[in-house]
Simulated assay, not measured.
Amino acid sequence: MSSLADRQAALVAALTSGAPVPAGFDGRMVEIARVALLRKRGGEVARQWPALHAALGAGWLREWSAWAAARPTNGSLRDGWDFARDLVSRDALPREAGAELASREAAMRYDGQTSPQTRRLPAIRTAAGTVAVQILGRVRVLHRN
């Protein structure tokens, strides 16, 4: 028999990262809770990434849920950043969200593993046809297609 901590960890994994539902739990109820948590998480990410949310419009929840369903959360800022980068890798980032991602990339260093850190040196970043420049802590968007 597994410990309570093992059962709790298995339930959390089922709710947040697409792991199988552990024995002894109602699969339908776990799925309802999983979907509710994805929606809540998506709302938190939308507040951190408003241009990305607006650019995806009615498709936001579908796109977000498909991407996030098998990924544990890293916090709304990092989740949105990882989601936006995934869209870039598939050439699916809407142009309207390009300035938001390029500005974040210019202002902060984020390796996809650790928390973002403020950049100290000047930086130029592009995303979806937008160029953002950071100098002395200020970010300016120079070009939008």
Rank of each mutant, 00 (worst) to 15 (best):
G129K: 08
S2V: 09
R47N: 14
A55W: 06
W64H: 14
L101R: 03
V12E: 13
W67P: 04
A107N: 07
W60E: 03
R109T: 11
Q117T: 09
D111Q: 11
P50L: 12
L61K: 14
G27P: 05
A99L: 08
A107D: 09
G27E: 12
P20E: 03
A107G: 09
R85K: 11
D6H: 01
Q48H: 13
A70Q: 14
S76K: 02
D6L: 01
G24D: 07
Q134D: 00
D79T: 00
N74H: 13
L101G: 12
A128V: 09
H53D: 08
V45E: 13
L121D: 14
L61S: 14
V141L: 03
I124W: 00
P22N: 05
L15M: 00
K40R: 11
E100I: 01
S3A: 05
A107T: 02
L93D: 09
A10S: 05
I32N: 04
G18S: 05
V88H: 04
S65K: 06
R62Q: 13
A36S: 10
D79P: 00
G80D: 09
L61M: 15
V21L: 01
L4P: 00
R34W: 03
S115W: 14
R125A: 09
G129Q: 08
A51R: 11
Q8M: 06
V21E: 02
L61R: 15
A128I: 09
V21T: 10
P22T: 04
R95N: 06
A128L: 07
A84K: 05
A13I: 08
A123H: 01
Q134P: 02
A54M: 13
P72M: 15
H53W: 09
N145P: 09
R104F: 13
A84G: 10
R34H: 04
R104H: 11
L136Q: 11
Y110S: 03
E31C: 08
G42A: 10
V131T: 02
N145K: 05
Q113S: 11
R62A: 14
Q48E: 15
A33M: 11
L38E: 13
R71G: 04
R138P: 00
E105Q: 05
W49L: 05
S76E: 14
A13R: 09
K40I: 10
A127M: 03
R90F: 01
V133C: 02
V131I: 07
P22C: 08
W67I: 03
E63T: 10
L37D: 12
I124A: 01
R41L: 08
Q113R: 14
A10D: 11
I135E: 06
A51Y: 06
H53K: 12
A107M: 10
S89A: 06
D79L: 00
P20N: 05
L61E: 15
G24W: 00
N74E: 14
P20K: 04
R85H: 10
W49E: 10
S89L: 01
P20S: 07
R138C: 05
A92K: 10
L52N: 07
G129E: 07
G98D: 04
L37M: 11
A51Q: 12
V141A: 09
V141D: 06
R62E: 13
E63A: 12
K40C: 06
V133F: 00
